[in-house]
Amino acid sequence: MENGIDFLHVLDPDMSSKIFMCLEDPSDLVRVSTVSPFWQQHVIANGLCKQLCLRLFPQLSKVDNVIELMSSTKNPAEVGSSNFTEWESLKKEHRAYAFLARGFTSFAVKQLIVEPIAASSTDNFPTENIYHTLNPSKRARRITYWSSEGQRNPAVPETLTYKLDGDLCLINEINIQPFQVFFQRGRPIYSAKAVRFRMGHVKQPKPPVGPPLDVLHSIHDCFVWTYTSEEFPMAQENRLQNFKLPEPVLCIGGIMQVELLGRVQKQEMDSLFYICVALVQIVGRSLAPAFSVDIDEHAKLTLKVPSYNQPSPPDIPSTNSSFFDQRHVRDYYWVEEDDESSDEEFDL
């Protein structure tokens, strides 16, 4: 506009920043920075992309340093303080947080579990271990599930802990299917009464994965939990149940724990309460391999950016595919109808 007035030249910097921070979508702020060199300078100098990311996800306030791994430029702290190095540092933070903001909305939504870490208890290891709660294969024509140990007190909780696909994951929802025991009389469903979710990171050197942790009762000592959800009621039904978080949650550290609260089904044979789970899916966006984090003993974070390339689409189907089809899940837990032993009753 020939006679237009650039409000950045009229208003003081603080007021201009407040106007820009009225934008809710980080992508809009990135677009603003491309309007003119002067606007770009204002966005970078005031760290507006970083401020907006912190407003969306306050956990990022613990980020103490940003490192671009693809850059050969020395860290400003290594070359001394100057206006040039300070400006280069601000530009680096702008690039990192602008790309991070882009990842929050554009990286692919997928199933995020990489591997199980531990179950608080397992009734029969390895036939009923936590590994059996992972994604089903269409070729896996067998009954697989995780079962807790039996308890006389139905209030005793259980936990399933998983490693996610990356240090930074934006979690939208969790899907859990309780297991219906087709080989017991009445085909009981051993669900929990409610579920709750924790997210966090390793507190000490990474614990081993496998049988040693599968019977570990002090799993909480291995991790720092930075987020705990509300409780969600679970239905005693043989279906994939969806638990959607009120807002997407940024998991920093790539560890998630499913808490199964309360038991509803008693086994007829031993009069003990059990919880059995057939399938767990954690759905969201992984910001790996574009981002990783280092966490020091003071819980300060170093945000690492290996590349500014958009990650390629995942091989794992998204939530829109037949991978999450309820019919697929039911097909997984299949029993030969002509198997004479299928009507016999077995102990968990």
Results as ranks from 00 to 15, higher is better:
240 L>A: 01
166 G>P: 02
330 R>K: 07
156 V>F: 01
342 S>C: 15
130 I>D: 00
229 S>Q: 07
246 P>V: 10
32 V>H: 01
69 L>V: 06
6 D>M: 06
9 H>A: 13
240 L>F: 00
219 I>E: 05
267 Q>T: 12
138 K>A: 12
333 Y>V: 10
3 N>D: 11
184 Q>R: 15
339 D>H: 05
194 A>C: 12
232 F>I: 07
5 I>T: 11
311 P>W: 07
281 Q>P: 07
263 R>S: 06
123 D>G: 06
287 L>S: 14
281 Q>N: 14
62 K>H: 11
319 T>E: 04
204 Q>G: 04
221 D>V: 09
94 H>A: 05
60 L>R: 02
52 L>S: 13
25 D>W: 10
145 Y>S: 11
195 V>A: 04
216 L>P: 00
104 F>M: 01
251 C>Q: 00
308 Y>E: 13
117 I>V: 15
16 S>T: 03
146 W>M: 06
345 E>K: 04
51 Q>R: 15
76 P>A: 06
201 H>T: 05
293 V>E: 00
17 S>K: 02
157 P>W: 05
342 S>W: 09
348 L>T: 10
284 G>W: 01
226 T>K: 03
136 P>I: 07
283 V>Y: 05
64 D>Q: 12
244 K>G: 01
345 E>Q: 10
247 E>H: 07
282 I>F: 09
225 W>R: 06
187 R>A: 12
331 D>A: 15
34 T>F: 13
102 R>H: 15
236 Q>N: 10
152 R>V: 11
80 G>D: 09
6 D>L: 07
77 A>G: 13
92 K>C: 13
289 P>C: 09
243 F>A: 05
274 Y>P: 06
20 F>V: 09
336 E>H: 15
279 L>D: 12
209 V>N: 04
26 P>V: 00
76 P>V: 05
215 V>Q: 14
121 S>M: 07
209 V>I: 14
25 D>S: 14
220 H>L: 11
